[in-house]
Design a protein around this nucleic acid. Structure first.
Length: 892
RNA sequence: GGGAGGCUAGCUCAGUGGUAGAGCGCCUGCUUUACACGCAGGUGGUCGGGGGUUCGAUCCCCUCGCCUCCCA
């Protein structure tokens, strides 16, 4: 195959010395572009979940990108036209926050001080300067993305898509503007969607306050967790069927701390068992009260403003106070008035800002919403029809549940950084939104023709651009070539934490705007934790930087560790010992290759001679290689990256290195073995190594190329070479049985020495008892090999073997007889043997009971009964030998 | 309040209707000319408690306990 002299592999395995060299070569050669495949190759498309421009690649990204790259490289080697589109998210709130903080630190100015346009310019500069960084971090991991198609969620094509989507929704009557109760962050000074609210259980107080009846006949006691909102109460409510209060409905109470009289109303929403069964109604500051207020036609008095301070409506004593200060003052004032009743500790869920953790304020505000139900219904129809499938499947249930209870999406944000909302208002308050396809800004009001138009000052929720991703990165709304060839994409890989934020919304956008699903499969991976299963957090100091890990252990090791850890559970315990274990594996591969190169010589070809003409050991390893390739392909097909990585690890280390290489060493060094046989074995050794590296390539894209280059001169081509598959013609169960018997025999002999404290160098005489036939013949043929493997002085293969001090065992398909020197039984030996006898007895008892059970014999499958019988025979034989050893006081 | 998931070796996790596996750890040997990031051998689990279905359950069903997460 390769005729050029092979470059040496360094004795020391140093991933840093070659990883990025190979990456650059791969990227520059165009292998990451779908055009590298043939014209008629079927496409395989993925879109990278865009990392925030504010961020640095963290382990969660590293996991997702690794799994995507494994898929991309695997499919590419299978000849698909792989398109993996990379991109970066402009991250509305996050970026604005960082830039504002930076501005404050540098100049002491707020964004309002510098003004909107200059501030946006600063944001743009800042983001542009960082966009490259995050993509370079993705490169460091080895991701084979097509950078020629890179996207940025705030670039021109993506802006067109956002504008188009909004325009369509508006003209379909699905985007509307309304004054509603929303989640308001007083610190970020913007509205947030329901999804951006973190509900945090926190312990607080439940205060009881007496509201005097207007007629002086007593008072009603209400319980509240937010006394400062009393100032905005416009009613108190009781349950309509609560006899305690029915007589009071329609009467009025005097609102403490104010001079207002408010009605007592009856409403079904009141929980009679909560507190006294009387609740205060504050329509402007509580979502439930807001609904109740509209039902009863109550006034909405806002006593807390958008800045988190009390408004003039709260009265001169409170206006201007912070929420928390107002609460204290209200409580003190109520006490002075003698209106406080008992207080109780109380825990309740408080909504906090996902970004800054500030306690959110429910406030009534005029915002843009998307009526999402029609989209959700269409999306659910698509998932029901399995046009999109979920792995693991259980997430579909979660998705269904959310979709069923979905609420309208608040898409406007009071930020500057983001996609501006394409809505204009005339002095009359009419709304003008350009029609789909109209790219120019409107010049006059559509209703009244007034040319004085003001653009909506708000921007869209960042997710309003993200949800269009699979469409917009391929060029939608234009009918581009990429869109027709690569859409719908094949798979979306991401963490389950953004199932609602992103995955569900993308499905809705896909089916709504294009009529097709955005991807055919969703693979949701777990969350990366530290090695003890703890959530990573800055405060705990257990955050692991994947890039630092790449520098210390190599990207190949980081990737392999992530893949092998990505099991079926929700969490992945990741850390240095895991990565170190993967690096140890990489080192093993490296050293195995170094050894092989020494054995192969210059002229060895990797073309394997006819399978049937090969020796049994060679057929065994090819059988195992083929089975491993089949397993890897099968596992990757169902997103079981852990299974695939495990299969490769076990095959390469245990079967290839510890098994095959050790056996073949002897054969290749034995001057007695004919050169023609050695040549065959060398070609098999070569082939297995090359195929192993190919199988490994999606997981370890660098070391695989480095070694292929040294071994076969084709490292540069490896990413586009065919991926090995299982081969029916490389199957030989008999060879597997024989070789496995040889290996077990060697293990048992070594184990006998260890049990007796004998040095492994002591040679022993051994025999294998097996009736004459093909098995005996095969074992006899491998006699010299076994003598070497197990360090025997002699080996007999016969139906019956007699040796002095014989010790009998059953291994694989044969009976093992080993001649051991007699010696006194030590107390340790005796204890060990007694323990073993007890264990054997216990097991035999269970099995005996089974075999005595008529229903077992009648109903269990024949194969199982046979197996159990054999087990009992073996146990009985073992017991006899153990008892003999014990009884003699000596042991062979 | 509603929903989901978990409980398997010291730790972190795979797994199967026929009495259990990996990595790391631990113990014992080993300068075996590819590899101590190694080699060889070993230790270690009534598969959360109880009940049921079954010839047989760690795996299916019920129940209890503990933990985690999501939604409201």
């Amino acid at each position: 195959m390769s005729s050029a002299p092979r470059p040496e592999l360094d004795k020391r395995f140093d991933p840093q010395s070659f990883e990025m060299t190979w990456y650059r070569l791969q990227e520059e050669s165009g292998q990451f572009r779908p055009e590298v495949a043939s014209e008629d190759a079927s496409p395989y498309t993925l879109v990278i979940p865009p990392p925030n421009v504010t961020g640095r690649l963290h382990v969660g990204h590293a996991l997702g990108r690794t799994l995507e790259d494994v898929l991309a490289r695997w499919k590419r080697m299978q000849g698909r036209a792989v398109l993996w589109v990379p991109g970066v998210d402009h991250a509305g709130i996050a970026t604005q926050m960082v830039v504002e903080r930076d501005l404050m630190e540098r100049t002491g100015k707020t964004r309002h001080d510098v003004g909107r346009e200059p501030f946006l310019e600063i944001c743009r500069e800042w983001a542009d300067a960082r966009r490259g960084d995050i993509l370079n971090q993705i490169r460091r991991l080895g991701c084979s993305c097509d950078y020629s198609r890179e996207y940025y969620t705030l670039d021109e094509p993506r802006s067109r898509a956002v504008r188009r989507a909004f325009s369509e929704l508006y003209h379909q009557g699905l985007a509307y503007r309304d004054s509603r109760m929303v989640n308001w962050c007083t610190r970020c000074a913007t509205v947030l969607s329901d999804l951006e609210v973190n509900h945090v259980e926190s312990s607080g107080q439940l205060w009881s306050v007496a509201y005097p009846l207007e007629d002086g006949s007593g008072d009603l006691v209400v319980a509240t967790t937010r006394p400062e909102t009393i100032l905005g109460d416009t009613a108190v409510a009781v349950h309509p069927e609560d006899e305690r209060y029915t007589a009071l409905v329609g009467k009025r109470v005097r609102l403490p701390l104010t001079d207002r009289l408010i009605p007592v109303v009856a409403d079904e929403m009141v929980d009679r068992t909560f507190g006294t069964g009387v609740v205060k109604i504050t329509p402007a500051h509580d979502p439930n009260d807001f609904e109740a207020g509209r039902r009863h036609g109550l006034a909405e008095i806002a006593v807390i403003g958008f800045d988190g301070k009390m408004t003039a409506e709260a009265g001169p004593a409170y206006a201007g106070l912070e929420r928390a200060a107002a609460r204290k003052k209200v409580l003190v004032d109520l006490r002075e008035l003698g209106l406080r009743r008992d207080d109780k500790p109380h825990t309740s869920a408080v909504g906090r800002c996902q970004r800054c953790d500030t306690v959110l304020e429910p406030l009534v505000s005029l915002q843009w919403f998307v009526k999402i139900k029609p989209l959700a219904e269409k999306a659910v129809a698509a998932t029901e029809a399995r046009e999109v499938t979920f792995t693991p499947e259980l997430w579909k249930k979660t998705y269904d549940e959310w979709m069923k209870n979905i609420r309208d999406w608040c898409v406007s944000r009071q930020l500057w950084w983001g996609h501006e909302i394409p809505a204009w208002y005339c002095p009359e308050g009419h709304v003008t939104v350009p029609k789909p396809g109209e790219d120019a800004d409107p010049s006059a009001c559509v209703r009244c023709g007034n040319v004085t138009l003001t653009r909506d000052p708000d921007v869209f929720d960042t997710w309003f651009s993200s949800w269009l991703m699979p469409l917009s990165v391929l060029g939608w709304p234009e009918k581009t070539k990429d869109l027709s060839r690569f859409y719908p994409t094949d798979v979306m890989v991401t963490g389950f934490d953004i199932l609602f934020f992103w995955v569900a919304r993308m499905i809705m956008a896909g089916v709504w705007f294009d009529g097709r699903v955005p991807f055919r499969e969703v693979f949701l991976h777990g969350l990366v934790r530290d090695e003890r299963g703890q959530k990573m957090s800055k405060t705990k100091g257990n955050v692991i930087d994947p890039l630092v890990m790449c520098d210390e252990y190599g990207a190949d090791a980081v990737r392999f560790a992530l893949a092998i850890l990505s099991g079926t559970g929700r969490d992945l315990p990741f850390g240095t010992t895991r990565v170190a274990a993967s690096r140890a594996f990489a080192t093993k591969v490296w050293n195995a290759a170094r050894f092989a190169m020494g054995m192969l010589g210059e002229e060895t070809v990797a073309e394997v001679p006819a399978f049937a003409s090969l020796g049994r050991v060679d057929r065994w390893i090819l059988d195992r290689l083929s089975a491993t390739a089949a397993k890897v392909n099968e596992s990757l097909g169902v997103y079981r990256f852990d299974e695939a990585a495990n299969a490769l690890y076990a095959f390469f280390w245990t079967e290839f290195c510890d098994g095959y290489v050790e056996m073949v060493k002897q054969v290749l060094r034995d001057p007695e073995v004919p050169e023609a046989e050695k040549a065959k074995t060398r070609s098999v050794l070569h082939r297995v190594l090359l195929d192993s590296l190919a199988l490994l390539h999606p997981f370890m894209p660098f070391i695989s190329c480095e070694i292929r280059e040294a071994l076969n001169g084709d490292g540069a081509k490896l990413p586009v070479l065919p991926y090995p598959a299982g081969r029916d013609d490389w199957s030989d169960p008999f060879a597997v049985e024989v070789v496995e018997t040889l290996r077990e025999t060697a293990t048992r002999v070594r184990n006998l020495r260890a049990e007796r404290g004998m040095a492994q160098t002591v040679e022993l005489a051994a025999g294998l008892e097996v009736p004459e036939g093909p098995v005996a013949e095969a074992l006899r043929a491998h006699g010299p090999l076994l003598v070497h493997m197990a360090r025997l002085s002699s080996l007999v293969v016969a139906p019956k073997v007699d040796l002095p001090g014989a010790f009998h065992e059953h291994v694989g398909v044969a009976g093992l007889v080993v001649s051991l020197p007699k010696r006194d039984l030590s107390p340790d030996d005796e204890a060990r043997i007694r323990k073993e006898i007890a264990a054997v007895d216990k097991e035999a008892e269970g099995i005996g009971r089974k075999l005595a059970d008529e229903s077992f014999l009648a109903r269990a499958p024949q194969a199982v009964v046979e197996k159990v019988r054999r087990q009992l025979e073996e146990l009985t034989a073992r017991r006899t030998k153990l008892v003999t050893n014990l009884g003699e006081g000596t042991t062979p």
